[in-house]
Design a protein around this nucleic acid. Structure first.
Length: 1059
RNA sequence: GGGCGCGUAGCUCAGUUGGUUAGAGCGCUUGCUUGACAUGCAAGAGGUCACAGAUUCGAGUUCUGUCGUGCCCA
């Protein structure tokens, strides 16, 4: 047998076994098999496709490790398993990263490159990062079916996207609408909410007066409004006042009073001040507000200064009578709250006053057209002053304003009303809600059902267009024409009346490539202007039809926008399997089994997959969704690609190994909590540890605090940085895993070295010793617990169970005990067979979590003991642990009697060790001890003599019920189930009397306290009367036990006192 | 503002339906070159289970509130 290193070499194992697994094709799922494998259904997981914006961090490592653990277990259980891998194009995020890079490094913008040029460059980026991401997954040990790797923008997915869009379009579920977007005037694109950051800036609060038209006597002639953005008044379409100012004020007052009553003394003054102001307001303002509310109800109009437009005074709850003038101007096209007001008061309309580049458009008086917002602001204020509607001296307050900025251009965001493509969600959302309510899709943990249902129940239509170039271009061709001059020759006559929202077909002429089946049409008719916009969606695979539409005579243009990334992600479970083709894969593996993901995309992704699955396939995409915790950094922040606080799993794998990382991850994946992972950098020059800080976590190079040498990090990109040595990232969490792997490795090393003359053979029950039966019993229990834990996504339970069993039971006891048996020829063969069997089982249980380690040992074990199952004596071990059968447990092996007998031995051994340690007796000195115990216990302990010798260098001199403790003894009475057993060591040679007295006195105190607490309980009549009989009984037993212990401790103390 | 979590040892976390003398790993202390493993072995110290009420014979565990903290939605 070759000699094995004392340390597990994770790098070697990873390099060796991953290519082997791939070559053997273990990860490839054959759809034809799935109907036939043992009657077991296929087991499928689709990967949440990581986006190609950047490399993976520990959060992804967690997500994918959890998937791999299940996939590997199910594969071993004989299911036809498919883990479908792939990546996501992540429209805006990726385009933004590439654009930023281009600008920084080559000083070119997307406009310089043009659409095709930019998209080309993004593809290059994608190739690079896809490679890196897939490489990371392989390094992690993920057993994905790589032959099926997909990308959300590849041809297969594109086909599914086109098909789905066409289907939705034809079904009338896609429409054009208006929506407020975060408009980045610098980049001229909408940005999503999470690409916006808020910053408080200094600004002003301006008060203006708008004249009332035809005010009745006694009514106000002007309405005062206040704004932080005067220029938007050009787009006002109403002024709102609260419909019931008195009620509202009373409500606010009541809330304040309640808060005042509950507030601690020091917080009272500001609330009192507010209440006073409110009272003042009721006196001075309320009447006027009441009047205004009545005027609003009557339909009074106001004259919007500078524009000459008339706008209504409306009653709406958005107006806050407790604030400012109590009236608020409404600019639906440029303010989110005002937009909501418009939704409630459709008649007021919305006026967009902004050009895409941030200047004012033709909807404002000529004077202001073309001005930037800033210039317009000055002009508007100036002109209002001129009209006497604003006094700069009294009507302007300083104020801090929370202003949204674009993360990408760092310029202020303009809320902007844009035309958008929407998907109608009413019915689709309902199907997704039903899927979960009915239990067709189970969400684990259940609390996330609420998130899912709450979001879907709003049934908000889904805006699917994005003003980007990177993505699936919307397959709609548009042309605007006059109503009269409808292009008869080209299009043929209109069949249906061209009403708004009517979908119909062109009548095809014979030469047309547009057939009734391959396209769908919608019209948007503007009767006032007598124009019609025609939208044509073409089903996939009809390039000629598209060409025809784009030909000069037809004059159609394809929509410039692309689809929201989530549109393609929503199809992922079926698009990756080949839909809309009726592939074998689709038949075999859809619906998939489980989805494993993180909670932040329950609404964005999970819900949409369910509704699209139902829509396209008529069937849910998966039966269970497991939502796992998130890894936070040392500052409690979630790791994210954009923040740059993520840790590259490769930095961990390189130092600790993939197995250690995976074990650490499984160990921390508990049901409820997110997990903090404070990390440190390890200097590659001097091994000093450098704390990760918010500052250094994004640096490409870091200088060591101690030796001042620089080293590189995952962010290194410049050659000079890359040339530096890379600093590893370290954390206890990984050390735990690394140490555990090493422990298993060494236990295996020991086993292997003692199996050289192993022969397979039947082991008869009567040949088994106590420790064998104990181990088999424990193994059965552990197998059951681990299987159950993984089946219910209790990863931490599985990892902890295995950790404790492997370390504390298998290594610390079983292996230690077999050492003694290998020296006894007649015991050797049985010990070997049980050991080989146990190691074999343990490896298989561990394999899903630590695949490389277990494969490495499996292969070594196969060399010396290829046949090693006690339960299937003829079975030869498989060529790889990947495809070995998952352990089954035998209830017959579980023997609580044996386990308690073993616990007895462990406790006595522990007592001996404790005395040795307390008395400072080194292991070199042989120890003799006595045990006072019942006869049957004595008999059993007698049989364990070799183990006391081996494991504690101690001999039980006397055992039995009549043993008298030595005169100078250190004594430990056992507790709990083992009460009645006393361990005594004659320590006359060593004893530190004072120390022993002190210890016993401590112990006595503790026990006395304990005794009193139980006595207290038992004296409580209510407890005795109300608690279940067995609980009361248990307390009585505890009391009796404590008393027994006390007796022996007092006796020992007494003896010491007599010395 | 609404929803969902989390506050247990110096740190990172377990603690299943209320009944244990509240656990683990790391760190710390003491002693070990025990022939698988110092990435190890043996032992030890360390806790008002955030705070305040309530329910109960009994609360780390259930309920209410407060404070702190995190995420999601607006």
């Amino acid at each position: 047998m070759k000699s094995l290193s004392a340390q597990y070499d994770h790098a070697a194992a990873q390099d060796k076994w991953y290519p082997f697994w791939e070559k053997q094709g273990y990860f490839h799922a054959d759809p034809k098999l799935s109907q036939t494998v043992d009657g077991k259904p296929p087991y499928t997981i689709v990967i949440p496709p990581p986006n190609v914006t950047g490399a993976l961090h520990l959060g992804h490592a967690l997500n994918n490790t959890l998937q791999d653990i299940l996939i590997r277990m199910k594969r071993m259980q004989g299911y036809n398993t498919l883990w479908m891998p792939g990546t996501d194009h992540a429209g805006i995020a990726t385009q933004a990263v590439v654009e930023r890079r281009l600008l920084a490094e080559e000083k070119v913008s997307r406009h310089d490159l043009g659409r095709e040029g930019l998209v080309d460059r993004i593809w290059q980026w994608k190739e690079q990062y896809e490679k890196r991401i897939l490489g990371q997954l392989k390094q992690l040990g993920c057993s994905c079916d790589w032959e099926r790797t997909r990308f959300t923008l590849d041809d297969t997915c594109a086909r599914a996207v086109r098909e789905t869009f066409f289907k939705l379009f034809s079904d009338g579920k896609i429409y054009r609408g208006k929506r407020l977007v975060n408009w980045d005037t610098y980049l001229q694109t909408a940005v999503s909410d999470d690409e916006v950051f808020h910053e408080v800036v200094k600004g002003h609060f301006w008060h203006f007066r708008y004249p009332v038209i035809d005010a009745k006597p006694g009514e106000p002639t002007h309405v005062t409004i206040a704004t932080t953005r005067p220029e938007t008044m050009l787009g006002d379409t109403a002024v709102a006042v609260h419909p019931q100012p008195a009620t509202q004020l009373a409500k606010v007052k009541k809330e304040l009073e309640e808060r005042l009553a509950a507030a601690p003394a020091k917080e009272k003054p500001p609330i009192e001040a507010q209440l006073e102001a409110l009272a003042e307001r009721e006196k001075t303002k309320l009447d006027e507000l009441q009047t205004l509310a009545e005027m609003a109800a009557r339909g009074v109009m106001l004259k919007l200064p500078l524009t000459g437009r008339k706008i209504p005074l409306i009653a709406d709850i958005w107006a806050k009578p407790e604030l400012g003038s109590g009236c608020v101007k409404i600019t639906p096209a440029h303010d989110a709250n005002d937009y909501e007001v418009w939704q409630r008061n459709q008649e007021i309309g919305a006026i967009n006053i902004l050009n895409p580049e941030g200047t004012l458009n033709e909807n404002v008086p000529e004077k202001y057209r073309g001005l930037t917002m800033k210039k317009a602001r000055e002009a508007v204020v100036e002109d209002l002053v001129e009209l006497g509607l604003h006094d700069p001296e009294t009507d302007r307050e300083d104020r801090e304003i929370d202003l949204a900025h674009s993360d990408r251009s760092k310029t202020p965001i303009e809320p902007y009303l844009a035309d958008q493509w929407f998907v109608k969600m009413d019915q689709l959302a309902q199907t997704a809600m039903d899927a979960v309510s009915s239990g067709k899709v189970r969400i684990v943990p259940e609390r996330y059902i609420k998130t899912y249902l709450d979001w879907l129940s709003e049934k908000r239509d889904w805006p699917v267009g994005r003003q980007l170039w990177w993505g699936h271009r919307i397959p709609v061709w548009t042309r605007q024409s006059t109503f009269d001059g409808f292009p008869e020759g080209a299009l043929g006559p209109i069949i249906a009346t061209a009403e708004k929202g009517v979908s119909t077909h062109f009548a095809s002429d014979k030469k047309s490539h547009l057939t009734p089946q391959n396209h769908s049409v919608r019209y948007e008719v503007n009767e006032a202007e007598r124009t019609v916009k025609t939208y044509v969606s073409v089903s996939p695979g009809n390039p000629k039809a598209e060409e025809q539409l784009e030909s000069p005579s037809w004059g159609y243009k394809q929509d410039e926008e692309v689809l929201d990334t989530w549109f393609s992600s929503a199809l992922w479970p079926h698009s990756t399997l080949g839909w809309p083709e009726e592939t074998d894969e689709l038949h075999a593996f859809y619906p998939t089994t489980t989805l494993i993901t993180s909670r932040d995309i329950i609404t964005l992704w999970v819900a949409r997959m369910v509704l699209m699955g139902e829509y396209n396939m008529g069937e849910v995409p998966f039966h269970e969704v497991y939502i796992h915790p998130k890894i936070l950094d040392g500052f409690g922040e979630t790791m994210s690609k954009s923040k740059g606080n993520g840790i590259d799993p490769l930095d961990v794998i390189q130092k600790f190994g993939a197995d250690a990382l995976r074990f650490g991850i499984a160990y921390l994946t508990t049901e409820t909590q997110d997990v903090r992972m404070p990390v440190e950098f390890e200097c590659p020059h001097c091994d000093a540890l450098i704390k990760q800080t918010k500052k250094n976590r994004i640096l490409p190079r870091i200088e060591c605090d101690k030796c001042h040498e620089p080293f590189s990090t995952q962010w290194a990109e410049k050659d000079e940085d890359k040339a530096l040595k890379r600093g590893a990232v370290v954390s206890d969490r990984f050390e735990l895993g690394r140490n555990f792997c090493n422990k298993v490795w060494n236990a295996s090393r020991f086993s292997l070295s003692n199996l050289e003359d192993y022969t397979p053979g039947e082991v008869k029950t009567e040949e088994l010793l106590l420790e064998d039966r104990w181990l088999l019993s424990r193994l059965a229990t552990v197998t059951r617990q681990v299987t159950h834990a993984l089946n219910t996504y209790r990863y931490a339970d599985a990892a902890r169970t295995l950790y404790d069993f492997a370390w504390d039971e298998f290594c610390s006891f079983y292996i230690e005990m077999t050492k003694a048996r290998f020296d006894v020829p007649e015991q050797r063969a049985t010990a070997q067979r049980v050991l080989a069997h146990a190691l074999d089982t343990l490896l298989r249980l561990l394999h899903p979590i630590t695949p490389f380690l277990t494969e490495e040992i499996w292969q070594l074990l196969n060399e010396v003991a290829p046949v090693r199952s006690l339960t299937n004596p003829d079975r030869e071990a498989t060529e790889s642990i990947c495809i070995s059968p998952w352990p089954e447990w035998h209830d017959g092996h579980v023997d609580s009697n044996i386990e308690s007998q073993f616990a007895e031995f462990q406790a006595v051994l522990g007592a001996v060790r404790e005395i040795r340690s307390r008395q400072n007796i080194t292991m070199k000195e042989e120890l003799s001890f006595n045990v006072k115990c019942p006869t049957e216990v004595a008999k059993r302990l007698e049989a364990m003599q070799p183990y006391f010798a081996k494991m504690a260098n101690a001999t039980a001199a006397e055992l039995g019920p009549t043993i008298a403790p030595p005169d100078m003894a250190a004594s430990i009475p056992l507790a709990g189930d083992l009460v009645g057993i006393e361990v005594h060591v004659d320590v006359s040679k060593y004893i530190d009397v004072d120390a022993e007295k002190k210890r016993l006195t401590n112990e006595e105190e503790k026990l006395t306290k304990y005794e009193r607490s139980i006595e207290g309980k038992l004296k409580n009549e209510k407890f005795v009367a109300n608690a279940p009989a067995e609980v009361v009984e248990a307390e009585r037993d505890k009391l009796a036990d404590a008393k027994k212990q006390l007796v022996s401790i007092r006796a020992a103390l007494q003896k010491l006192a007599e010395l």
